[in-house]
Structure formats: C-alpha cells, structure tokens
C-alpha cells in the first residue's frame, strides 16, 4: 500500500485551478520531492492531503484513509508528521510548552533525540523566536511522535546551512528506517540532493514525475569545450546541442544526445580541454518553465 496515493485531485477556486487533475503515489520508504515555484499549487496539494480543504473532484489517500472520510483521516493523523510552510504556533507559549501541547495529542517518544539535532531555545516564548528557531521547533514537533509519514512544506526555509545539512542527513536516515517523506520545495539543489523521486508541479498541473536520476539523465549533459582556436559555430554545433554559449574559443552547451556520438564529433576538432558533467536541476527546470527561473522569494 502506498503511503500517499493521489488520484485526479482537483481544487478550483472559481475559474482558477490551484490543483488540476493531479495523480501520483508515494511509496513507503521514499523521499518524494514535490517541486515547483511559489504559487504553483504545492501547498494546496498538501492542505488537501491534510483535509484542511476539500477537493473539487478527485481524491487522495493518506495511509489508506480517504481524505473525504473525515473520521478515517483524523485517525490516520496519529501516524502523520506535518511541518507547514507558515508555522502557526501559539506564540505566548514557550517552545517546551508547545511541544508538551502536541505531545498530549500524539506522543513524543523521540523528542529528546530530535532536540539534540535541532535545538531551539525551549524556555523562551515562541514570539521571541527567529525564523530558524521556529523552523527547528516545527521539525521537532513534526517528528517527535515517530510518524510513518511526514509531510514537509518548505522544511528548510529559514534554517542555517549547518542545520539544513543536518535536516537532509536526518531525512535520509528516516527514509532508510522505512519512513515516507513528502517534501515540498522550490529549492532545486535541495531536492536534487535528498529526494529519490520528484514530481514537478506548474500552474496546478503535474508536468513531470520521475526518478531523480532519470530526470538528470533526461536533462542531458552539461558540456564545456575549450578549443585551441576560435571555431566556426555553424560547423561545430549539432542538433543535439542546446543552450549553446560561445565565448572566444570556449563553447558551453547542454548535450541531449548519446555520449559516444558527442565524443565522435569532438575528435574532429583541435581541443585543449573538455568538461562533461550532470546538469543542475535548475537547468532541467528551464525545460519545464522556459527561461523563467523559479523565484526564490516568497
């Protein structure tokens, strides 16, 4: 049984479809990256999964519970960890009191272990917390009851790089322990680093659903060629080269064909140096979004 199964899920607000016929499943023991720019509909999918909003059509199952069945969904939430993008804590409480509050509803057997990794100032009131401290408290509350499934909406926003690395390592360990992580982000490098599979959402529609390695492969190879002298671009460039940039005798491009064919082609030129590597997910993203780079701001 999939931890999360989404079937033709649609949420409309008047004419606008925040989610438009989205279908995919997330298996157990998987880190699934849900990728898209702000406003693409990631949070809408998550809020549908949590039963906070009702689907216009289609449905989803969270740990086998249909999201339209309120009673079953409520029961399933005992095994769910949720880290929202906007953390709505009771600001008057201290961090410790907030964790006590959540533990009364679903337990906290892993609280101490988590507090060693993520250490917000527990004795202070949450209203005094920085964004990073709020996020850390959010992570602790999301995982302290050892949930089977964790739904994380932009989980590393506001965290310093060290804590981001800790978070990534923690998620990988959880995955290896059989937990399911649903991870929404607009930070591509993050998804590239930790996720096993990725779904890309754009304007409410799922535009890609792939293994992260396939996606990188599909994105072609990033190639930089240093020629001994300037070359006639018309002679050098083939159909498989896209996004070609030429500066003096250096040519950079993304190669979408077979590696062997590229090498055959290159030996016909006088070459000083060649660099072939995996493309950044950002570049792959361009194929889905055109030249418009996803915005980093919120």
């Amino acid at each position: 049984m999939s931890a999360i199964r989404i079937t033709d899920l649609t949420k409309r607000y008047g004419e606008i479809a925040a989610n438009d016929g989205i279908s995919f499943a997330v298996g157990r023991g998987e880190i699934f990256g849900y990728l898209g720019p702000n406003g693409a509909g990631k949070t809408t999918t998550i809020r549908l999964l949590l039963g906070l909003i009702k689907p216009t059509s289609g449905t989803a199952k969270l740990l086998g519970a249909d999201i339209r069945d309120r009673r079953a969904l409520t029961a399933a939430k005992a095994d769910l960890g949720y880290l929202p993008d906007t953390l709505g804590f009771e600001e008057r409480l201290t961090g410790r009191e907030a964790l006590d509050y959540f533990s009364r509803m679903r337990g906290d057997e892993r609280r101490d272990e988590l507090l060693e990794l993520f250490d917000p100032p527990l004795e202070q009131r949450i209203e005094t917390y920085s964004a990073g401290n709020q996020r850390m408290l959010g992570i602790v509350q999301a995982f302290m009851h050892d949930p089977t499934v964790a739904i994380l909406d932009e989980p590393t926003a506001g965290l310093d790089p060290l804590k981001q690395d800790r978070m990534h390592a923690f998620l990988e360990a959880e995955r290896d322990a059989g937990k399911t992580i649903f991870f929404s982000s607009h930070v591509l490098s993050e998804v590239q680093r930790v996720c096993d599979r990725v779904g890309i959402i754009r304007e409410g529609k799922l535009v890609a659903l792939e293994d992260i390695n396939d996606l990188l492969e599909r994105g072609g190879k990033e190639v930089r060629v240093q020629l001994t002298e300037s070359v006639d671009e018309r002679a050098f460039v083939t159909e498989q080269m896209i996004d070609v940039e030429t500066v003096d005798s250096t040519v950079r491009f993304t190669y979408t064909g077979e590696a062997a064919a590229l090498l055959d082609h290159l030996v016909r030129f006088e070459i000083d140096d060649v660099d072939i590597g995996d493309p950044q997910l950002d570049d792959i993203f361009k194929h889905y979004y055109g030249d418009e780079t996803p915005s980093e701001g919120r």
């Binding site: 809020r47 949590l50 939430k77």
Partner: peptide, 18 residues
C-alpha cells in the same frame, strides 16, 4: 483567530476532529 494565524493548520494535523 486560529484560522487567520494558521494555528488551525497545526492543530488539525493532530488526530483530533474538528
């Protein structure tokens, strides 16, 4: 007030009915 400041999202992520 809980809906406006998003406290309700966190509250309802617990196994507690509306």
């Amino acid at each position: 007030s809980d809906i406006q400041n998003r406290t309700m999202d966190l509250t309802l992520s617990n196994p507690v009915s509306r």
